[in-house]
Design a protein around this nucleic acid. Sequence first.
DNA 1: ATAATTGCAAATGCTTTGCTTGTGA
DNA 2: TCACAAGCAAAGCATTTGCAATTAT
Lengths: 136, 136
Amino acid sequence: MSKIEDKCQQKGVRLTEQRRLIAKVMSQSSDHPDVDELHKRISKIDEKVSIATVYRTVKLFEESGIIEKHDFKGGKARYEQAPDIHHDHLIDVNTGEIVEFINEEIEKLQNEVAAKLGYKLVDHRLELYGIKTKKN
Amino acid sequence: MSKIEDKCQQKGVRLTEQRRLIAKVMSQSSDHPDVDELHKRISKIDEKVSIATVYRTVKLFEESGIIEKHDFKGGKARYEQAPDIHHDHLIDVNTGEIVEFINEEIEKLQNEVAAKLGYKLVDHRLELYGIKTKKN
DNA sequence: ATAATTGCAAATGCTTTGCTTGTGA
DNA sequence: TCACAAGCAAAGCATTTGCAATTAT
């Protein structure tokens, strides 16, 4: 059973054949696929699953905290399995490649900024867009 | 002449009656209006300006570096006059209110993170979402 | 003059939804 | 059993675009 299936049980999310399949494909994806890409991967295993179901499921999983949704610049929403430890993303503007990173210092500063402005941080978004540095 | 009109001249952006009006309304807006809101404000002065023109102009201004576009979570794109010094945003998730802030430390760390990963930073997005802290 | 801009409505692209049939616990 | 899920096609929403008429330089 995939980790996502596992979480569905915990959260009381009813598992259907389609959801199991979507969970499996998400589990096996180490990148950040959009719904269309996800649907393509799923269709290779079962071409009867509709894209509407993928949309509905992905939304359900997200609302249940099972997967994470990202709206990077320029385009469609992308998804990844909810990680155990939070990370942010650097997007290669040339290739679209996504690199995950963790920086405790920045996280801390964000909280400080919010506090200083009289707010409690409930969410944040940090995305870096870059181009590869030539390595000589 | 508004600061935005000024920049249009510098950048060689042809000024029409509509563009002048959009520039004026943007200049007078200290918040971060979306296209619909902008169109409403414009319509109060000239109700013949179409929303398509607002979309086109706002895009043109953005591509010319005259205004900035922000895709905050949940909704439509919002715009503000391009600031002289870069700032980021904190969004009050209850009221939608937007607070601008500057934090050099975070900016520096972002560059360091990118460099460490072998990238040169070309753009970034930092948004904090918070709720007001009760002040007793 | 004439290349660029506007207004309008139609088209787009991603995402959601109503409805009927199918199905998991 | 029976509330919930899936498939399909239609609808939604923000945004873009084709085209004919208008305008800035």
